[in-house]
Nucleic acid binder design. Sequence first.
DNA 1: GAACATTATTGTACGACGTACATTTTGTGC
DNA 2: GCACAAAATGTACGTCGTACAATAATGTTC
Lengths: 203, 203
Amino acid sequence: MSHLESSAPGRRERKRQQTLDHLANTAWTLFEALGFDAVTMERIAEDADVAKGTLYKHFPVKEALLRHRFHRELADALPAVFQEIAGLPTVETQLHAFLARNAEWSEQHRAYLLPYVRFRLSEAHVKAVEQRSGLDQVFSHLIRQGQANGEFRMDYAPELLANYLQFLYLAVLLRWLLDEGDSLAVEFERMLNVFLQGLKKPE
Amino acid sequence: MSHLESSAPGRRERKRQQTLDHLANTAWTLFEALGFDAVTMERIAEDADVAKGTLYKHFPVKEALLRHRFHRELADALPAVFQEIAGLPTVETQLHAFLARNAEWSEQHRAYLLPYVRFRLSEAHVKAVEQRSGLDQVFSHLIRQGQANGEFRMDYAPELLANYLQFLYLAVLLRWLLDEGDSLAVEFERMLNVFLQGLKKPE
DNA sequence: GAACATTATTGTACGACGTACATTTTGTGC
DNA sequence: GCACAAAATGTACGTCGTACAATAATGTTC
């Protein structure tokens, strides 16, 4: 029994991942065809040809199927984005660039974001690292870098500041989803501006 | 038919308010006795001696019963709080004092805040003024005052800034509800500090 | 590789929760 | 008072998620 799960996934774990992907893909197809709300868990199970209980075991709620897909998308896209912003001179500009990319992505997934965001807020009680949103980790990383740089104030933990930024991000996103005023990218700029005025060291 | 509903409430509206209070009070008693989660809508209706459909008509979800009570509490407490903080010299200190008061209140209602906050986030799509949280309006008011004062930057609308502050408030509150680290008041101080460094004009 | 232990999947049946609707009661305007 | 509108009642129903016992698949030990 190896304690390094990554080195010995075993067939069971492989099949699990396979089933997860299969379920999420089946669900996604249905979402795109019928709209998120119109799709029922029973229908997903039926189309995926598994028992209802099996689907519920892997994905206790419909939104978890979205998470599975989005996390995979994020994991696939992140390296390229990081490479893209790595060349920028300051963490401030990196944050702006990152949010600009995020705005594009959000516009493409607009239809799913409202239920998804609510779901993520509802499961905030899960503190497990792998459950933390990708955003949280990206923000933590960049802010820590900015602190090491001397760009940002050092008197707060980067995790705390990242948490603040994440909720400011949510504020903007929800406003955009509901009111649909200016472009999301512009709203992110505004928010970052306000946040950074406090985050940046006074010179 | 008067178009001023406040001038001609009518018996119907009076009874409605009466029923609302009765339902919310009955529910509150049950919540305190059995815990929020353990109380069912059916039980509330039964104890209040109304049909299930009637309860659902006034309060589509259980959390709405909390909102009714909390809004009333807020409305009752606000005047005193405003009077208390009015004497403070700057809006910055007023914000600190207000959040300190809010921290006390939150600690007393801790058990209900998690479901309540989630509920409020879920109904964010309701843009009606009377639905906007009391906090939102308090923050707007204070920030507008701070802008008029010359304390705060003027390049953003107070409503937008209040929205940011509200989500930072939520960030702190949720962290406290889930992780239970330092005292809520301290966490509010920290958050306000970060927010104000950006909100305050550089001198 | 054979027997045992563990975990996952199936299918069904059940219970809780919210909704719909026809009926009755209550309030409003003439 | 009467006629109309609106709200409350109670029941019946449909949906959704869960529980459970039986079965299948995987992992482990010798």
